[in-house]
Amino acid sequence: MKWHWNRNTVFSLILAAAGWWVIDHMIPPHVSGPLKVTVSKNNAPILDVHQPRAVAYGKTLWLDTLELESGSRLRHPKLGEFGYVENFFLDVETVLDVRKGGLYRFTVGSDDGFALYVDGRLVCEYRGDRPLRYDTCSVALEPGHHRFKLSYFQGGGNSGLRVTYVAPEGERARPVGEDSEALRFLPPQDAT
């Protein structure tokens, strides 16, 4: 059968493009990744990342990256905001599958405070309230698995979190969650 281009064909193509666009914008975004993120809404105001928690309710998500800042708000690029505006904690857990040993440099940009642990040891922190500021901390990692945990809190006002790493002899910073030749990220329960 021979196909003829005509007005109806053009009409069909326009409708197909519109239909595709509409359906694409109706489907909820889905993200899966190696970062286990627990969001905990606190009953009391949060002033310090280490203060005793009074968790009212919470939820767990699996994210692909810790690039969570846009327009001075804590936002995931696909999932959007986390449902709470103020006084909540975010605890990120993952396992670092280190393939190339050496000194790893983590940069944490947070609004408000944070505390970063590797294998249960506090690597760096900023305990209190602040606008988005960056801290860099280095940690020597042997090849193998290492537990990574980051606690973050949002008190009030603006919010945001960006965490990147640079592998030994690495040329550029990558967001935590993005694999490189030197380092892979594994979901906590998959690591042995």
């Binding site: 109806n8 064909t9 009409f11 069909s12 409708l15 197909a16 239909g19």
Partner: peptide
């Protein structure tokens, strides 16, 4: 074809 387009709209 035309009516299918209308239905799609």
């Amino acid at each position: 074809h035309f009516y299918a387009n209308l239905a799609a709209f």
